[in-house]
Design a protein around this nucleic acid. Sequence first.
DNA 1: TATTGTTATACTCTATAACTATA
DNA 2: TATAGTTATAGAGTATAACAATA
Lengths: 162, 162
Amino acid sequence: MAHDDAAVAGDTPDPVPQDTPFDEVSSHVVFRLRLAHEAVFRAFAQETNDPDLKPRVFSALSVIAQYPGISQSDLGAHIGRDKSTVTPLIAELIASGHVAREQGSSDRRSFHLTLTSLGHDLLHRQRQSARRHEARIAAAIGTSEAKAEFMRSLDRLIAVFG
Amino acid sequence: MAHDDAAVAGDTPDPVPQDTPFDEVSSHVVFRLRLAHEAVFRAFAQETNDPDLKPRVFSALSVIAQYPGISQSDLGAHIGRDKSTVTPLIAELIASGHVAREQGSSDRRSFHLTLTSLGHDLLHRQRQSARRHEARIAAAIGTSEAKAEFMRSLDRLIAVFG
DNA sequence: TATTGTTATACTCTATAACTATA
DNA sequence: TATAGTTATAGAGTATAACAATA
């Protein structure tokens, strides 16, 4: 915490107000985006006590469910991560029995990823948690329409700056 | 890249469309928020060739300019970081001559941070870069009004989940 | 030559805990 | 006891580059 107002250089700064201060920094999208991302990310992980409910696990399971047989590189492209980042993630999901991997027959460099029944079960549970989380987000933002507009803005930022 | 449509488990997946795919994952705020944050953060750092234009540097300079004499702990509270994270940041800014530090006279545990003239100059330049960056964001989102609404949504998320 | 996946490595950003010195 | 700041350390999360196998 800090001063209530600027330009005070004395010894004992006043405490800052607890509500959002009107800092210059707060007026920039990049900083609020960082804080909002951190907050939403944390809340997502806490949505259940399931230690497997990590966004990266959920995203991997979702993409594999949607594209059964997808390769690791393609999965990486879908979730915006390098293949070297995908490797340990998939290793973890194979070790936990949620994902199965089969070598390609026509191209033996690549693997085809599929969900096991355990993986489908986990995805099902994570979808429920994700649904609750999205509902909390909609409530925080205000309405479903406002949330949809928020999503559109995120999309435009990703499209322009991504 | 991956399949064009789901449930194809063949050997050679079709390439994924280059525009945003309608993945399940894309329909969740948490994932788009991550990608948008990464993209906007990267663009901010690239706004100029100035290697000092890091969001954390800009935020520290801004807060110190707004609250001259602020302590390191208070600064950390303003930018949402622990004091142990602030220590090396301030050390860097003192080493580069942008920030000055003076021990408190009434409470000698704490320090008072101020900007040097070099620090003011840097902040001035960073503000210009930040202004351009914010303008690009507004253009990406569409209008200033849409950006303002976007900011309000970010604020609500921070307030609810922070 | 190009690509898939693995590995080794390193970098960025961050926090927790233990510590010193003050209060 | 409590607080300001430092230090040591650790842990996410990620990418780059070199590599082997395959195309």
